[in-house]
Simulated scan of single mutants.
Amino acid sequence: MAWTVSWKVFVDGQDMTDGMRPFLTGITVSDKDGTASDTCSLDFDDSGGQLKLPKDGAKVQVYLQGAAVFSGTVDTVRSSGSRGSGRTLKVTAKGFDAKGKVKEPQSHHMDDATLQQFLGKAARRAGLSMVIDPALAEITRDYWSADASSFLHMGQKLARELGATFKIRGDKAVLAKRGTGESAGGGTMPIVVGRVPGNVISWDIAPLTTRRSFKSGVSRYFDRPSASFKSVSLDTEIEGADAINEVRSLAADEGQAQGIAEGRKSDSKREGGEGTVELDLEVTAQAEGTFMLSGARPGVDGSYRIAGVTHKADRGGGSTTSLDLKQPEGGAGKDDR
């Protein structure tokens, strides 16, 4: 069967598209919101066992419909087969080199420094450049410590604490404020439009979920000048919520407590709804971008934050994009009829 979607695959900078065309049967690319690495799977018909395995650590770039949808490093190669169903080869790549220094423990500290200075230093030790959202970069603390943590662990921990997205792609690490629809550099993320009828194949959306809705986020810290425990509280602005989301751990100071409380506020808004939607292939979709839905029904139509994107292209079955959705806004969750 012939492909119905345009694709290209580069390995270590070399265009391998023509050589792969007789054997490649499927492409799957996943872009998550920072909780996991971007991944890509290439499925091959390996009936004759004639395919050469990619070398360890090979760099892979994938394009769909002319757009770059993945760049990373080969992580695993898996051969499967049985007596009655032939042989297949699956090549899986991750958004960063899992054998690199991103997982190496670091032991260093900084006094009276910004988040940009501290995490930038940790990134350089891991062999990466660092881009931090301006809203987070100037956070200043009197003491930062790596505490024998890897750069990967430090980035993920700070992202959870600050309500941010942490991502490593190739040789660049990014820490962006979550839920704003903007990139770490301040630019607007792509907006994807879904229409029913139109490019929407299916949807399964709960525009209102209350389990993780809180009235406010509270973080406690010990104030040294007054020798007493104090707290920072931020209203989440969620209508009808009564419960208070108090963080169990103690913050180091008021600045950290403020950051943690803001992170809890962001999380509560983000978890106010959830769902999935499947579209005709939409290569512009990115995690943390905005999805605008229309034509489904009142109370479901509106805007959502994209938490994850999966592009699938199949030699015999066309191509689709699946979105994981969070943070309903713009009328989603409200039926005003």
Results as ranks from 00 to 15, higher is better:
Met1Asp: 12
Ala2Ile: 11
Thr4Ser: 15
Phe10Ala: 12
Val11Ser: 13
Thr17Tyr: 06
Thr17Gly: 04
Thr25Arg: 11
Thr28Lys: 13
Thr28Cys: 04
Asp31His: 09
Asp33Gln: 10
Gly34Leu: 08
Thr35Glu: 06
Thr35Trp: 00
Asp38Tyr: 12
Cys40Ser: 09
Ser41Tyr: 01
Asp45Thr: 01
Gly49Asn: 07
Gln50Asp: 15
Gln50Arg: 12
Leu51Asn: 06
Asp56Arg: 11
Gly57Ala: 12
Ala58Arg: 00
Ala68Lys: 15
Arg78Leu: 11
Arg83Ala: 15
Arg87Asn: 14
Leu89Asn: 00
Val91Phe: 00
Thr92Ile: 03
Lys101Glu: 11
Ser107Trp: 08
Ser107Leu: 13
His108Ile: 05
Asp111Lys: 15
Ala122Phe: 05
Ala123Arg: 01
Arg124Asp: 15
Ala126Ser: 11
Val131Asp: 14
Thr140Val: 07
Thr140Phe: 10
Asp147Gly: 02
Ser150Ile: 06
Phe151Cys: 05
Met154Glu: 03
Gly155Asp: 03
Gln156Tyr: 05
Gln156Arg: 14
Leu158Arg: 05
Arg160Glu: 14
Leu162Glu: 01
Gly163Asp: 03
Gly163Trp: 05
Ala164Leu: 04
Thr165His: 07
Thr165Gly: 12
Ile168Thr: 05
Gly170His: 11
Leu175Asn: 09
Ala176Met: 05
Lys177Ala: 13
Gly179Gln: 00
Thr180Pro: 03
Ala184Trp: 00
Gly185Lys: 15
Gly194Met: 04
Val196Phe: 02
Pro197Lys: 06
Ala206Ser: 11
Ala206Lys: 08
Thr209Gln: 13
Thr209His: 01
Arg211Ala: 13
Ser213Cys: 10
Ser216Lys: 09
Ser216Cys: 06
Arg224Thr: 13
Ser231Trp: 05
Ile238Ala: 12
Ile238His: 05
Gly240Lys: 13
Ile244Asp: 14
Val247Ile: 15
Arg248Pro: 01
Ser249His: 07
Ala251Gly: 05
Gly255Tyr: 01
Gly259Leu: 10
Arg264Gln: 14
Lys265Cys: 04
Lys269Glu: 12
Lys269Asp: 06
Lys269Trp: 13
Gly275Lys: 06
Gly275Ala: 09
Asp280Gln: 09
Glu282Ile: 00
Val283Tyr: 14
Ala285Phe: 09
Gln286Pro: 04
Ala287Asp: 02
Glu288Arg: 00
Leu293Pro: 10
Gly295Trp: 01
Arg297Gly: 07
Thr310His: 00
Thr310Cys: 02
His311Asn: 07
His311Met: 07
Arg315Ser: 08
Gly316Pro: 01
Gly317Glu: 13
Gly318Trp: 08
Thr321Trp: 12
Leu323Asp: 03
Lys326Ala: 12
Pro328Lys: 09
Gly331Thr: 06
Gly333Leu: 09
Gly333Pro: 02
Asp336Phe: 06
